[in-house]
Amino acid sequence: MAEKLQILIYGYGNPGRQDDGLGNHFVEKVKAWAEEKGLSNLSFDSNYQLNIEDAAEISDKDIVIFVDASIEDIESFELEEITPDAKVEFSMHAVSASYVVHLCRDIYQKSPKSFLLHVKGYEWEFMEGMTAKALKNFEKAFGYIKPMLLNPQKLLDY
């Protein structure tokens, strides 16, 4: 039963740096919405960045959606399926979502279907609160993801 699939939504970023808090904001809002809808198969987490212990956290999930702010040249948001990747990045006190998925597969032999939802941000200074443009992008992303959370088969088929 697709609606019983265990789904983790994991937002990351620094909410003290304006639009870098988009991932955390997303989790807060979806959590409130899921409680209202009684979606008990959804769980949530937030952090400044991803790290190796997140491989353990995702290991017992069926579907994982990582949510992060993006400065890339995208319209407003993008949802992409994650391909496991062991690539070493410049910044390795934190790791990428694809690295977490790869590590999970290697040490727990589990491969939850994993996505990265990146939402476009614009400002990154030492300030609380996101820009109006970033919040609009969040609303669009939220609207896009809701039907998928109500019917997780759509995520499996993505």
């Binding site: 970023g13 620094n14 740096r17 702010a69 993006s70 400065i71 990045e89 910044s91 934190a94 990146h118």
Partner: peptide, 8 residues
Amino acid sequence: ATHALGQM
């Protein structure tokens, strides 16, 4: 502390 995608 800002690690947004592509921000490095």
